[in-house]
Design a protein around this nucleic acid. Structure first.
Length: 654
RNA sequence: CGCGGGGUGGAGCAGUCUGGUAGCUCGUCGGGCUCAUAACCCGGAGGUCAAAGGUUCGAAUCCUUUCCCCGCACCCA
């Protein structure tokens, strides 16, 4: 019976579809899964979607669909995208499935029985306008720190005794150096726990969507508590046999959800329930777009399948190979400790230099020479020593990388072999050997093919389609086991080689070199972001939610023309400006988050469109009696709307 | 003083824990080869390792201080 190896990704929230930033985690998990599978282990690779949470209900409502139907369609699109990227997961769990709901409720009950969950009175001074609770000590003259009225409220909720787990957690982290990876994240987690862990409220008032607390229908389980349990729910827990799929050997995730959730709350929950902890938690860094975090609101989302389709079209490569190219880029530049940046130019460059020039061309020239010099068949004999050394060094480096979860280093290891091959060919110059009828020619050709065969195996976890294409061109069955890589027996003497055909056609690069000074300039002109940066952002896969309203609904909105009289920055805030706006005879104070694009001086005297019948609210302690209408630029900044020509102040906008 | 990450040739990064000739990929310039997808190979130029001070025989690396960039949090009505 083969040793098992369990891998998880987080379950994705269904409010947006994956882009190359979020898909990174799933790709890393897939590469790990394929590698472990090659090692002969029985792999269980779990992913899924998080469908509870009140925002889902709201989004469904906005889309005019029943929540379940809405969620079904999004979950389906997730699995379509994963399939398109050749992600081979073994199970896809959805938090609306009965097996998950059941596990969550059982887990909750178990923790209750063990005394780790208690019902507590959540009480305190509540500031209604800012929806925040304050302690007695926080109040200033009987009001909130912002100066709002507060009232005493009591709410019953369930609490998880996380405070008791700080010591056990620290001990576990100490005793298991590979529990939290990378090191920098581990330090962060330790620092976080040392600050002290507080009991955490694990239920909310039931909004009609979510998992009810067992025995108390008025409450639903807190979404994070709920979500984390998916890992054991998918293993079948609490039914017998869950040990086959839990604990996970590795749980991949982005660094943002490591510290607070996976490295503290989650292990504390498991300890409380008496369940084993995962072996490793890996929190990779982010892939940024043009130096910023990829996010839907900034409009800089790049969908992996769009990127692949576009590449296939531009380069003429096979669509499956284009998917590999995207996988390669993501794997080879996988941000581990520190964030990296995606740019379309960088993607193109890596495609050309690494895939087309290095790997593709090495395969192509090697096959061409085999046909020309040794009759198109794999010669027998031994691989030359330096080639054999290079092969085993690459295998060792790739193995080390994989055990450290450094997917990027694993790619680098494979490429070190490809680079060796290109050097080797030039050094040994088979064309010269052929001319001189040198007897070492067959051994050199065999050595070249051996490098390619080993490369095929090494890149298999990252580039499954490319790997298969290499095997096909070599006329061999694909390598399926890691232990076969580099073995003489994997290169059968006399095998007929296919005609060489470029796997990765080169891309024609138009691209101008952008100097640092030029780039800076572009950046300072906010709305002038470079066109090529924006282009791929127009994702055809984005999960925009459309809903229709009637004219009556619109009539509820009162918009008027106003003129800015005064403007000043609000201290302690990056974005907020305090504006005094004349709307007809009336003067209003409005707070607007537009400072990234507008200085106070730019605004004075300017006409703006104001939403006037919006409930007043305090922002950073300053009351705002309305809202300015603005569009959003590529970087999430505001672009103010203004009448096409001067309009009388107070004019109704329709 | 909210928390955290980072500043290394034109670009992207490694090296920092465990001080000892500054390394890799891309770009650039020159040369070579002709098997190959104008691909490949070799060589050169280009760095006061953000700044200052300190420890040391010796600092990118250790200590102190400062400056700058970026996330998160707050906040975008």
């Amino acid at each position: 019976m083969a040793a098992r190896y369990c891998i998880t990704t987080p379950i994705y929230y269904v409010n947006a579809l994956p882009h190359i930033g979020t898909a990174l985690t799933t790709l890393a998990a897939d590469v790990t899964a394929r590698y472990q599978s090659m090692q002969g282990r029985e792999v269980f690779f779990l992913t899924g979607t998080d469908e509870n949470g009140t925002k889902v209900k709201e989004a469904a409502l906005a889309a005019g669909k029943p929540p379940q139907e809405f969620v079904d369609s999004i979950a389906g699109r997730f699995s379509d995208i994963w399939h398109g990227m050749d992600i081979q997961y073994d199970d896809f769990i959805r938090t609306t499935e009965p097996r998950h709901v059941h596990a969550v409720q059982e887990f909750f009950k178990l923790l209750q029985e063990k005394g780790h969950i208690y019902k507590g009175l959540y009480e305190g001074w509540y500031d209604v306008s800012s929806e925040t609770f304050y302690r007695e000590a926080d109040l200033v003259d009987g009001k909130s720190p912002d100066g709002n009225e507060v009232r005493w409220v009591q709410e019953e909720n369930y609490f998880f005794r996380m405070s008791g787990f700080a010591e056990p957690l620290l001990r576990h982290i100490q005793a298991h150096p590979k529990f939290i990876i990378p090191e920098s994240r581990k330090n962060e987690v330790v620092a976080f726990i040392n600050q002290g862990l507080r009991d955490i409220c694990v239920s909310r008032h039931n909004p009609g969507w979510g998992i009810p607390v067992p025995g108390d229908e008025t409450q639903v389980v807190y979404v994070w508590f709920d979500a984390l349990i998916n890992y054991v729910a998918a293993a079948g827990w609490p039914a017998a046999g869950w040990q086959d799929r839990w604990p996970a050997d590795v749980q991949w995730m982005g660094k943002d959800i490591l510290t607070r959730f996976h490295a503290t709350l989650w292990p504390a929950m498991l300890m409380g329930a008496g369940l084993p902890l995962p072996t490793s938690l890996v929190g990779h860094a982010w892939m940024l777009m043009g130096g910023e975090k990829i996010s839907k609101s900034k409009g800089n989302v790049v969908a992996p399948l769009d990127l692949a389709a576009e590449l296939a079209e531009r380069s003429g490569c096979d669509p499956k190979i284009a998917v590999d190219a995207v996988r390669y880029y993501m794997a080879a530049t996988l941000p581990f400790d520190t964030d990296s940046t995606f740019t379309p130019d960088d993607f193109d460059r890596r495609y050309n230099s690494d895939l087309a020039n290095d790997l593709g061309n090495a395969l192509n020239r090697s096959l061409a020479m085999s046909h020309k010099f040794t009759g198109g068949k794999i010669p027998g004999g031994a691989v030359e020593p330096d080639a054999a050394t290079a092969i085993s060094a690459a295998i060792a480096a790739a193995e080390k990388a994989m055990t450290e979860f450094r997917i990027d280093h694993a790619a680098e290891a494979a490429w070190s072999l490809v680079r060796f091959l290109n050097k080797y060919i030039d050094t040994r110059a088979p064309w010269a050997l052929a001319k001189n009828q040198d007897p070492s020619l067959p051994a050199v050709i065999r050595s070249m093919l051996a490098c390619l065969r080993a490369t095929e195996g090494l890149v298999h976890p990252i580039l499954p389609n490319t790997s298969a294409a290499i095997a096909t061109q070599l006329g061999l069955e694909p390598i399926s086991l890691w232990s076969q890589i580099g073995k003489e027996g994997s290169l059968t003497e006399g095998t007929k080689l296919s005609e060489p055909r470029p796997i990765f056609p080169r891309l024609e690069l138009h691209k101008p070199v952008v100097s640092k000074a030029e780039r800076k300039e572009t950046k300072s002109e906010k709305s002038m972001a470079t066109p090529e940066t924006l282009k791929p952002a127009q994702s055809t896969h984005s999960a925009e939610i459309h809903s229709e309203i009637g004219i009556d609904d619109f009539a509820k909105v009162q918009l008027k023309v106003g003129r800015v009289l005064e403007a000043e920055a609000i201290e302690g805030s990056d974005k907020l400006l305090r504006l005094q706006v004349m709307i007809g005879p009336e003067k209003r104070q409005i707070v607007a988050g537009i400072r990234n694009n507008y200085q106070p001086i730019d605004l004075i005297g300017r006409q703006v469109i104001v939403l006037t019948n919006l409930k007043a609210v305090k922002l950073r302690g300053v009351e705002s009696q309305g809202m300015l209408l603005a569009a959003t630029d590529a970087e999430g900044g505001a672009i103010l709307l203004q009448p096409d020509q001067e309009a009388p102040e107070g004019t109704q906008v329709r």
